[in-house]
């Protein structure tokens, strides 16, 4: 499946103490057990410009983050950043650190986007303080894994 010239990185983003915002982190931990060992998996608590450092040695990067666009909780949206831009308001916006969409814009200006960047947004419902998700992680994980493996092939 993975060709030898490509190195793959999966990054889970989120805050594990903000309910459904933790999905990216929890998912990356689950995927680490299920994905081939050649695919690296990283976690990122803050997002922002740190992502540029995390992905700098990889040419095929998959980001998993919580999304909030009004769809049913657990719905997976896929964005190929080499072909499209992110919807402005779907991902967590912060006034003090760079959001994913801002980071992608910055990386594009700095010519520091990976050759291939795909973002999976997983719809959340509750973003209050607390641990645990408002929906079943396992069911989303299987669907996401299927998507990821298709992308990697």
């Amino acid at each position: 499946m993975c060709d030898s010239k490509t190195n793959y990185l999966v990054i889970g983003i989120g805050n594990e103490f903000r309910s459904d915002d933790s999905i990216g982190i929890l998912m990356s931990r689950m995927l680490r057990q299920k994905l081939p060992a050649t695919i690296k998996v990283a976690e990122c608590n803050g997002g922002g410009v740190e992502l540029l450092e995390i992905w700098k040695d990889y040419n095929s990067v998959f980001i998993i983050d919580a999304a909030s666009s009004g769809k049913a909780p657990g719905t997976i949206s896929r964005f190929d950043l080499n072909k499209e831009t992110l919807p402005q308001n779907a991902f967590n916006y912060s006034s003090h650190s760079f959001s994913i969409s801002e980071t992608v814009k910055l990386a594009r200006k700095l010519n520091r986007l990976p050759t291939r960047l795909i973002i999976y947004g997983i719809e959340g419902k509750i973003f209050e303080q607390g641990t645990g998700l408002s929906y079943n992680l396992e069911s989303v994980c299987d669907a996401l894994l299927k998507n990821l493996l298709t992308d990697i092939q």
Binding site: L106, K109, L110
Partner: peptide, 17 residues
């Protein structure tokens, strides 16, 4: 914002990072 700055002066933003 800094994204506009990166557009005109990427070398400055890269050094900042």
């Amino acid at each position: 914002d800094a994204i506009q700055l990166a557009g005109t002066s990427p070398e400055i933003v890269n050094k900042a990072l």
